[in-house]
Design a binder for these strands. Structure first.
Lengths: 200, 200
DNA sequence: GTCTATACCGAGATAGAC
DNA sequence: GTCTATCTCGGTATAGAC
C-alpha cells in the first residue's frame, strides 16, 4: 500500500520499456512453469503493468508465447549445413549443432516444448511438424538401407530426448555438462541409427 | 432436446458404471489434449454426469489424472529383470521391455508425460524423478568407463525420446511400427552410450 | 452412497473510458 | 498508452435431493 503500483524498477522515467520487461518476465515464467502454468495476471503483476496491456501488445497469451520465442537466429537455416557434410560423423554434427544453437536459449526451447506438449492436438504441434517435414526429409536423403524413414525419425526422437532432459527436466549431470562432452557420447548413438555398424 | 441428459449409452439401467465411464472419457481427453487442455466440465458432459461428481469421486482434476493412470502392472517391477541380464544386449532389452510395457497403455503414458511437461516445476516432476532415482541408479551400477552417470542419463534421454515420438507426437512410421522393429534399430543406439564401441 | 444444483473465485478476452 | 469494467469459461467447495 505504499504506492499505487509500479514495483522493482521505477527508474527510467515512464519509458515504454514495458514491452521488453514483459517479455523478460514472460520468458522466465514460461520456462519455469510451462504455458498452462503461467498466468497473464501473474506476469503482469511482476512486470508492474496491467494484465490487459499484455493482451493489447501481443494479442493474447498465445501471442505472448510467440513474441517470447524471437530468436537471434533462424533454426531452419542451421539444417542444410549439417546435412551437407560427411555422412560418417553426421551424428556428432547433429547434436553439436543442435546444442550449440539452443544452449544459449534453453528457456525458449523449454517453453516451446512444454507448450506443445502441454495441451492441444498432438497432430498439429508446430515444432514437431517442423521436425517431421524438414529434418526427417533431409535425413532420409542422406541415409540408405532398410527402414530409412523409420531410422530418420528415430534420430529425431533422440534429439527430442536430450532436449527434454537437458532443457526441460534439467537432470544432472546432463543439464550442466559441456555440450562438447554430451556430443561425444550422444553423437555416436545417433550415428548408430543413421549408419548402423552391423546388419540387422 | 430429446431427453434431459444421458447420451450415447442409455443401456444397463441406471447402474453406477459412471465411475468407469468417467475414467474412459478422461483417459481419452487427457491423452488427446493434455492435462491443461482437458476440461472437467467437458469430460463430465461427454460422460453424461455432473462436473461436481468428478471432484466428488476423485477429489479434483489432479486426482482424476492419478486415477486415470492406474495400471495392471507396476512399472518399477519391470526394472530389475532388465538390469539383471547380460550387459551386451542391455540396450535392446531396455527398449523392448519399455515398449512392451507401455504400448498397450500409450494413452496413459501420453497423459503422464504431457502432464508433467505441461506445467509445474521441472525439478519436481514425479515421472522424471522416478527415472532419475531408479533407472539411472540401476544403470550406473551395470556400466563402466568414464562419465558413467552421464551416459546412464543419456540412455534415459533416449527412452523419453521414443516415448515422445511414439506416444505423444505419434509421428509415423515410428508410431505404428511394431515394437520389435523399433527395438532392433533403437536398441543398438542405446547400447552405444552404455558400452561404447570405441574409446573417446 | 450416488448424484445434482448452486455459488464462488481466478483466469483470459474484449470494449471502451480517460 | 493506460486502465477499468465486464463477459465467459473452468475448477472447486458446499448443500442437499434421492
Amino acid at each position: 500500500m505504499t504506492g499505487p503500483r509500479k514495483r522493482g524498477r521505477p527508474a527510467a522515467g515512464s519509458g515504454p520499456d514495458n514491452r521488453e520487461r514483459i517479455l523478460e518476465v514472460a520468458r522466465k515464467h514460461l520456462a519455469a512453469k510451462g504455458f498452462a502454468g503461467s498466468s497473464l495476471r501473474a506476469i503482469a503483476r511482476e512486470a508492474g503493468v496491467d494484465p490487459s496491456l499484455i493482451s493489447h501488445y501481443f494479442g493474447g497469451k498465445a501471442g505472448l508465447l510467440v513474441a517470447t520465442m524471437q530468436l537471434p537466429f533462424n533454426p531452419l537455416e542451421k539444417i542444410p549445413p549439417v546435412l551437407a557434410g560427411d555422412v560418417e560423423d553426421l551424428g556428432v554434427r547433429l547434436v553439436t549443432t543442435f546444442l550449440d544453437a539452443w544452449d544459449p536459449h534453453r528457456d525458449v526451447f523449454s517453453a516451446l516444448l512444454r507448450s506443445t506438449f502441454g495441451s492441444g492436438d498432438p497432430a498439429s504441434m508446430p515444432a514437431v511438424q517442423m521436425a517431421q517435414n524438414v529434418v526427417v526429409a533431409g535425413l532420409r536423403g542422406k541415409i540408405s538401407g532398410p527402414d530409412a524413414d523409420l531410422r530418420a525419425t528415430l534420430a529425431i526422437a533422440q534429439l527430442i530426448g536430450i532436449a527434454s532432459i537437458r532443457y526441460v527436466a534439467r537432470l544432472e549431470p546432463v543439464a550442466s555438462a559441456p555440450a562438447e562432452l554430451v556430443a561425444r557420447w550422444y553423437g555416436p548413438a545417433i550415428q548408430e541409427v543413421l549408419t548402423p555398424s552391423a546388419d540387422r
